[in-house]
Design a binder for these strands. Structure first.
Length: 161
DNA sequence: GCCAACGTTGGC
DNA sequence: GCCAACGTTGGC
């Protein structure tokens, strides 16, 4: 199973919002690299839910993929800020996945704290100039972050959906 | 294909 | 609100 990190501005859509929503289409990604990662996601993959552009940015929870990549409908909605007139309907340019909340992190992990963890030096999130909103997390990085956040491996060893 | 201009992201 | 970093656009 692969692991990922998804960024969201909590003022727009927080982890608590995801918990209320239950399942949410992760739409609006308009960066090719991020899109390619979305397309690599499989059902049941676990994703850290990261709060960006906020007072204390950091990892707030864990979500999981409920539906693999399919066309992002907003690219065909002229009224949407995510509309893309150049996307061919027979070969849509942009994809989205559906995600559902799994669990909040018992201990919120700020970006500042993550930066201080030697094992996470390779994480794209903590590297300079990182702007990707969807990024891969290695198995080892996933374990380190989950444990730092107060999650037992049991808590994450959930039944597939 | 180069690269300057521009827009966006996101930490601070 | 500032600005560094980075991606995209478009003229040439």
């Amino acid at each position: 199973m692969a692991h990922w990190l998804l960024k969201s501005e909590p003022d727009v859509f927080s982890f608590a919002d995801l918990q209320r929503a239950g399942v949410e289409p992760w739409n609006g990604v308009r960066n090719y690299q991020a899109r390619n990662f979305l397309r690599q996601m499989a059902v049941n993959d676990l994703c850290f839910f990261y709060h960006s552009s906020t007072k204390v940015p950091g990892v707030a929870g864990v979500a999981r993929v409920r539906r693999a990549a399919y066309p992002d409908n907003l690219q065909f909605e002229p009224s949407s800020p995510y509309f893309d007139a150049g996307s061919p309907p027979d070969n849509p340019r942009w994809s989205m996945v559906d995600v559902a909340p799994l669990t909040e992190l018992p201990r919120f992990l700020s970006l500042d704290e993550l930066r201080g963890v030697p094992e996470l030096g390779g994480l794209r999130l903590v590297q300079k100039g990182n702007r990707l909103s969807v990024l891969p997390v290695s198995d080892e990085e996933f374990r380190v972050i989950a444990e730092l956040g107060g999650l037992t491996l049991d808590a994450l060893n959930v039944h597939p959906v």
